[in-house]
Structure formats: structure tokens, C-alpha cells
Nucleic acid binder design. Structure first.
Length: 183
DNA sequence: ACCCCGATCGTA
DNA sequence: ACGATCGGGGTT
């Protein structure tokens, strides 16, 4: 069973990502995304909760694009948007519940110490493309999320860029900067 | 085969 | 607040 408080520098496991999507999105604030050598504190997330959420890509059932959302929690869901950007999500909830958390911002812990604020910018910097769809963050040696005991204050707001489901406060945004040592 | 629009970004 | 941008998902 996942117990966040007891360990530090612990890779988040499938048990964590199988939790309710809102809980995962909220708890991911302050966790560290480790991506092909880069590390970044997650500063902004959004929850997309499945067939009852009209803004969710899986709201109208399984398609080629969203198929991974129906699979194991902890898998990546990468999609292409606006003809020019990619967005990185992490699948949540047990198999069959098509939900995910969109990663919208990370504070890099390595040079150039940029705050990658925005899902498109995040993927552009980390060179995330469709080839990074369906990676297992709970077992990959290159891509994972870990708890380093960082806690950030955050607020909740409506999600960005959607037409339906704006009544839900399912966006989580850090209200403070994580202090990064720049030499 | 094709139409239409988007979970964005950058500038104003 | 808004225009640029255009690939490709979903449906024909």
C-alpha cells in the first residue's frame, strides 16, 4: 500500500496512480518528474475523470487515440494538439476507468532551471512526442515520478482551454515557487 | 479521403 | 483578448 509520508525519494507506484483522479492530480503537486535525465517539480496539473467528464478525451468511449486511458494506471498518455504541440498525461484509476492527469507545469531542478509553465512548453522542452505514449512510469528505467518530500502550497481553479466542464475546479496550481539553487 | 477544430502559445 | 497554426482523429 502506498504511504507517502513514510518514505522519501520513492518512485510512485501503480497503487498511487490507481487512486481517484482528483486525489492523484492534487497529490502530484510537489512530486518530481524524472524524464530522461531531467528532473522537475510538478507545479500544475489537471484531472480528466472519464466518461462522466465531457472535457475528457475518453468521454465518448474508446478510440485509437485515447485507448491507453483504458489501460493500467501509471502509463503515459501523450496526444498531439493544435497542429503543433504535445501534451503529457498520466493514466489514473483501475483498468477500465478511462481517466488521466494532465501535467501542465514543472520547475526544472537542472539547468536551465526553467519553470516550464504550460503543457505544450513542457513537452517541447523535454522533446516529448507520440513515441512517448504508453510508457510505464512505474517500471521504466528512464521515465518515472518520485516523492522527494517537497510540499508546495497550491490553489484550485477551473481547467484551461476546455468548453465543457468549466464548472469543476479540477486544476491544481502551485502558488509558490520551489526554490532552486542556481550557481 | 476529407473536414474541422482543438486539454496551446505568445504577443497585445 | 486574440490570432497563428496545421496535423490528424473521427467520421464519411
Amino acid at each position: 500500500m502506498f504511504t507517502k509520508e513514510r518514505f522519501t525519494n520513492m518512485r510512485l507506484d501503480r497503487t498511487f496512480f490507481e487512486q481517484p483522479t482528483l486525489k492523484v492530480a492534487e497529490t502530484l503537486i510537489g512530486q518530481v518528474l524524472c524524464w530522461n535525465g531531467y528532473r522537475g517539480v510538478i507545479t500544475e496539473t489537471e484531472a480528466y475523470t472519464g466518461i462522466n467528464d465531457p472535457a475528457c478525451h475518453a468521454a465518448r468511449g474508446k478510440t485509437l487515440r485515447n485507448a491507453v486511458m483504458f489501460e493500467n494506471a501509471g502509463l503515459t498518455y501523450v496526444y498531439f494538439i493544435y497542429g503543433m504541440y504535445y501534451c503529457l498525461n498520466i493514466v489514473t484509476e483501475p483498468i477500465g476507468i478511462a481517466a488521466a492527469v494532465l501535467l501542465r507545469g514543472i520547475q526544472l531542478l537542472d539547468a536551465p532551471y526553467t519553470h516550464l509553465n504550460g503543457p505544450g512548453k513542457l513537452c517541447r522542452f523535454l522533446q516529448i512526442t507520440r513515441e512517448h505514449n504508453h510508457l510505464d512510469l512505474t517500471s521504466s528505467p528512464q521515465y518515472w515520478v518520485e516523492d522527494q518530500g517537497i510540499t508546495l502550497n497550491y490553489k484550485v481553479t477551473p481547467r484551461i482551454g476546455i468548453r465543457q466542464g468549466q464548472e469543476h475546479l479540477w486544476r491544481f496550481v502551485a502558488t509558490e515557487n520551489y526554490p532552486v539553487q542556481i550557481l
